[in-house]
Design a protein around this nucleic acid. Structure first.
Lengths: 237, 237
DNA sequence: CGTACCTTTGATCTTAATCAATGCCAGTGG
DNA sequence: CCACTGGCATTGATTAAGATCAAAGGTACG
């Protein structure tokens, strides 16, 4: 909304926090200018939905700031979160007819959105961009497959430990990879359960157990302090 | 091995069964000739391994014939199958340092292999190929995410029903999408368990139950006849 | 034939789901 | 300022699904 006035500003991307990490990183200034003309910024409030599962795939986007979830539902309405996206990640289904999952902002988020058709055309004309997108998609596929191991073969404790470690890494918490790192979870207990394929009660019990065992501290519902990363890594097996 | 003599045959790809479906489909004859010089065919026996998890990523391949499994292991040695590949699928990790999963032939299989570095270079110089690879990778990511829902939220019956339906579709069984379709499973009970995140006993019990309920018939260990596809679809929910 | 492996079947146990309260805040309005 | 409300989260009791342990059947192959 605030972005609409800037839509054609020449140096729109110059101030972009993810300019050098997103799929647009390798583009020449001239190409960036062109990309500017088809993209626009959009701010999302927590809980706001960007894409709906099964809809025609009209939009794709780069995540500039915030965390969003990709999710799908079972026929009886339970949810499975398929992935989380963080700044510099790419979102949506280029070269596809329908959106394969819903996308919802978990925190306040800023995205750089494109009409899918515009983006598809631009990508086909700019192999450097398409290459970056390919690299990203391959990496995402690897990550997703590793997550399958978690869902298929790990117990509740291993799942939660792995989740917390992934959170620490992805949210880039300070505390120099060491103990004492404090993170603010962008997810509710229910959403964590939906990521891990568990119920909310099981997640809650595991949190309490880890706290009692001194692995973590829970100053508030949304905050976690990592007290013993090594032990957590052992639990994640 | 038998292929080595043909390595530089000009029309190597012309007789390729997947020439029009694999990532090489859009290439010009001239480009195909070039691709020929860096690729070679290889035949794999059932159980033979092509890539090892964690190894340096040296090879990528197109599947020409047969079924292969991609798998990873937990620290305590249990296996999780991450996916199955069928003719025209692409295999391996281009643009990556290490192979993220093991690859093993389930049936006798024929693949068209490339040194990863050769392939990477060729791909970067041929955007059409890279585009096909991107489309394939995006589709594979969608499929993998759908599988996550299965692993995270479905019970044993739903998992096996979905597995059988996927098998019918992917193996392209005759019987015109209808009942009576007979398929030969390329997987043992244990391997099916490893795909679905179950134990062999649970898989066996579900097979027996479906047979008793008249959904399927089991003429032999590796054969399944779909007697009531509709009911199976209901179970897969 | 006999052996070895895979599969099936049965009995029991464990884990996480389900069912059911209760507790804890944050925000609202009296 | 405090009591009320409603939405999460925690905790407890019970149940159910699938894992595990154990044994016996089949089938394939030498």
């Amino acid at each position: 909304m605030t972005a609409s006035t800037q839509q054609r500003t020449r140096h729109f991307c110059d101030t972009c926090a993810i300019r050098n990490r997103a799929i647009c990183a390798d583009l020449e200034n001239q190409e960036i200018d062109l990309l500017n003309t088809i993209g626009r910024r959009r701010t999302l409030a927590p809980g706001e939905q960007l894409l709906w599962e099964g809809d025609e795939a009209v939009l794709v986007a780069n995540v500039i700031d915030g965390v969003l979830k990709l999710s799908t539902q079972t026929s009886d309405g339970r949810e499975q979160i398929l992935g989380l996206t963080y700044p510099s990640d790419f979102l949506g289904r280029p070269f596809g007819e329908t959106t394969p999952y819903g996308v919802e902002a978990l925190t306040e988020a800023q995205v750089c959105v494109f009409e899918r058709r515009d983006f598809d055309r631009f990508a086909r004309e700019h192999p450097r961009l398409e290459h970056r997108l390919l690299e990203r998609t391959l990496a995402e596929l690897d990550r997703t497959r590793r997550w399958m191991l978690l869902l298929g073969r790990m117990n509740a404790e291993q799942k939660l430990a792995a989740f917390l470690l992934e959170m620490v890494d992805r949210l880039g918490v300070n505390s120099a990879t060491d103990n004492g790192a404090a993170l603010t979870l962008p997810l509710s207990r229910q959403q964590i359960a939906d990521v891990l394929g568990l119920t909310i009660e099981t997640v809650s019990r595991q949190f309490t157990r880890m706290k009692n065992e001194g692995l973590i501290d829970l100053p508030s519902r949304r905050e976690v302090v990592i007290l013993d990363r090594g032990a957590l890594e052992d639990r994640a097996a």
